[in-house]
């Protein structure tokens, strides 16, 4: 499966045709508490990580928010 993750093409070494955002976070080992996730330019809120699927060709942004200002 090939997606565009954070403005870079990325091949996910998975047999599945689609995966949830939560599965992608687990696969990438992204465990940050404060995340902004967008799929094809649409915000996906935390409560929908298990319900929203990512498929081949999707554009996914996962931005880790950290303190400091």
């Amino acid at each position: 499966m090939k997606i565009n993750l954070n403005n870079r093409d990325e091949i996910l070494d998975l047999e599945l045709k689609q995966i949830t955002i939560q599965q992608l976070l687990d696969y990438k080992k992204f465990s940050f508490p404060r995340l902004i996730v967008r799929v094809n330019d649409k915000l996906v809120k935390k409560e929908n990580y298990e319900l929203t699927f990512i498929k081949d060709g999707d554009k996914v942004d996962i931005i880790h928010m950290i303190s400091g200002g």
Partner: peptide, 18 residues
């Protein structure tokens, strides 16, 4: 966005994107 705390940054990004 010019907050200090990560949770506030997350809050404003979600609010503005939505």
């Amino acid at each position: 966005e010019a907050f200090d705390k990560a949770e506030m940054k997350e809050m404003i990004v979600e609010t503005v994107l939505q």
